[in-house]
Design a protein around this nucleic acid. Structure first.
Length: 561
RNA sequence: UGCCCGAUGGUGUAACGGUAGCACAGUUGACUCUGGAUCAAUCAGUCUAGGUUCAAAUCCUAGUCGGGCAACCA
């Protein structure tokens, strides 16, 4: 018998990396995660983070966190801090390797000068409209800017003046001199420096010219000695430019490799749309638990491990697909099933009275904290004559396969007693069930029948006198359609918002939860996994966020009729 | 209409010229003091057409479909 582990399957990027190590192309691996600090990170970034930091970790290399802050118009410190926090929370560490693209501005300026000196860049004064006009369209070649033949000296001087602030925004731009007829638009003399009199959140007004992404990014990678520059598919067409600039400057040349970004069903992932949801008040901030932001998932109660596991299961390819949100839900359930202590909470309560239980009597029963983890121990559950049970667990009439409270049937109260339902009392006017009356079998304390009779149904309950009233937020998917991005003429993605994505209720919760620390998770048996909101909870008054419902196979049976 | 990229069950992926496998979702059954979990079974796939080869998901060509590219955004 061999117990060789099946070799972990490598995705195509890890294969390239492994090859480069094997052939000695690189002695060590250096990757980077380069977010622009203009928004909060979301689960799509988590995929990239797991890849960038993961590859480094697995190969004993390092991964830089680099804030790609080359456009001060939308960037700020709040975003920088949130990004750092989210990455750390996810479980990754950049160590000493925290960098800012803006710290390379002086070097980049020099590089641009070098390009100019080598006749590979020029200062152009075409207006934005003319710039577009000259660029042409994908199917038609562009034409050379009249500025293309400006002398090196003049270019250098103009560029210096640009930096000095002698010109208006947009008056001049520096362009790489490549090929206006290239079938790749990005090679048609792309802008590499523009004038923007905008206060930079880190460098104040030191600069009024800023490098563009295409010019800056490859140089950032080069300066940091990145070996593998991993990015998403939309940058594929930029790669020739990435390569051109590094070759033109004859500097260290990392390899850019593109992979598919993550798309998740029933949500949106673009920064612009997330911003719109936040600013439009459709959600309550960047950490709204309905959002796919890292902050939102954290607030919802997801764990870093579950998110990492999800990213691992999604894999890395060049296929731009749509991942089913149920995979994410599976990952968190899978973890929490093993780790989350159980508790009882009645979300939609109806009173149950045990008519043969002595009035005024109390007793303490023992509940198992986690059947999946004996080490989690047990806890005390107060029991009394009047309880709350779930309204949906009560029916006046029901098919045989409904193993719950129906007159004449016996069910088990979890960890308590077997009770027989005698009567379902309804409001004569509304027809709503107001109370369930049962009799209990005193010999079944703990829930076991001494005569060994089988009872199929077990339901959860909370003692009415001991119950804690707690706010609970029931979250559902933010959008009603699988691909909210796909909209009909005249619609926008917001028209697919789910109006019932948040329902706030007051639940009856077992008293053991009263003083549990905010930030902990539990499973409400038969209902859901929940997270004690660390922000809104007060001492003695926990507020619960439903992370995800438990799988509910009864719902499927019931739905089929 | 130009260029780049992609295509394997419903979904996400593996197979690196030699038996199409895994996971999620679905379905069925077993078990169960959570209609949870677990276990078992099951459904279901190589975009199309040519070519190369003893042998093609894999290599080649063409087509089809999908994605990306025309910010002085990243």
């Amino acid at each position: 018998m061999t117990d060789e582990k099946p070799e972990e399957v490598l995705d195509f990027i890890r294969e390239i990396v492994a090859d480069d190590l094997r052939t000695g192309k690189h002695a060590g691996i250096v990757t980077r995660f380069p977010p622009e600090p203009n928004g909060y990170l979301h689960i799509g970034h988590a995929k990239a983070i797991c890849l960038d930091f993961g590859v480094a970790q697995e190969t004993g290399g390092r991964c830089h966190l680099r804030l790609d802050d080359t456009n001060p118009a939308k960037e700020n410190e709040e975003y920088v801090e949130s990004i750092k926090h989210d990455i750390q929370w996810l479980g990754f560490d950049w160590g000493e390797n925290l960098y800012f693209a803006s710290d390379y501005f002086e070097q980049m300026y020099e590089y641009a000068c070098e390009l100019i000196r080598n006749g590979l860049a020029y200062v152009c004064d075409l207006s934005v409209e003319d710039f577009k006009e000259y660029r042409g369209v994908p199917t038609r070649p562009g034409k050379d800017s009249p500025c293309r033949c400006r002398s090196v000296e003049e270019n250098l001087e103009l560029f210096r003046c640009m930096r000095e602030g002698d010109f208006e925004d947009g008056q001049y731009v520096v362009r790489a001199k490549i090929d206006m007829a290239s079938p790749n638009i990005h090679m048609r003399d792309p802008a590499i420096y523009r004038i923007k009199r905008i206060h930079h959140y880190r460098h104040g007004d030191k600069w009024c010219i800023y490098p563009t992404y295409d010019f800056a990014h490859c140089l950032e990678d080069s300066i940091e000695n990145i070996t593998h520059s991993l990015c998403t598919l939309e940058f594929e067409v930029h790669r020739p430019l990435y390569d051109w600039i590094l070759d033109a400057l004859d500097v260290y040349h990392p390899r850019q490799i593109e992979f598919a970004r993550l798309n998740l069903s029933y949500t949106v992932m673009s920064k612009r749309k997330l911003l719109e949801l936040v600013e439009g008040g459709h959600v309550n901030g960047w950490d709204d638990p309905r959002l796919p932001t890292i902050a939102g998932l954290r607030r919802r109660g997801f764990t870093p491990a579950a998110i990492r596991e999800f990213c691992k299961r999604v894999g890395i390819t060049k296929f731009d697909g749509l991942t089913d949100i149920s995979l994410l839900e599976y990952c968190i359930r899978d973890e929490l099933n093993k780790t989350a202590p159980r508790a009882m909470a009645v979300l939609n309560p109806v009173k149950l009275v045990i008519t043969n239980y002595p009035e005024g009597q109390d007793e303490e029963l023992e509940g198992i904290n986690n059947p999946e983890d004996p080490a989690a121990g047990t806890r005390v559950l107060p029991f009394s004559r009047e309880l709350y049970v779930e309204r949906e667990d009560v029916r006046e009439e029901a098919p045989k396969k409904f193993f719950r409270l129906v007159p004449g049937r016996e069910v088990r109260l979890r960890y308590a007693y077997l009770v027989t339902c005698d009567e379902v009392i309804k409001d004569p006017v509304t027809g709503e069930v107001t109370e369930v009356r049962c009799t209990y079998d005193p010999d079944t304390r703990g829930g076991n029948a001494p005569d060994g009779r089988k009872v199929r149904g077990t339901i959860h309950w909370v003692s009415a006198a001991h119950a804690l009233d707690s706010e609970m937020r029931l979250y559902d998917r933010l959008f009603m359609t699988e691909r909210p991005d796909e909209v009909k003429e005249g619609e926008d993605f917001k028209s697919h918002l789910n109006p019932d994505s948040l329902e706030t209720i007051t639940a009856k919760v077992e008293p053991s939860l009263r003083d549990v620390d905010p930030g902990t998770r539990c499973q409400f048996e038969r209902k859901c996994y929940a997270y004690i909101d660390p922000i809104d909870s007060q001492p003695g008054a926990p507020v619960f966020n439903r992370i995800v419902p438990l799988r509910d196979s009864w719902a499927k049976i019931a739905a089929k009729g």
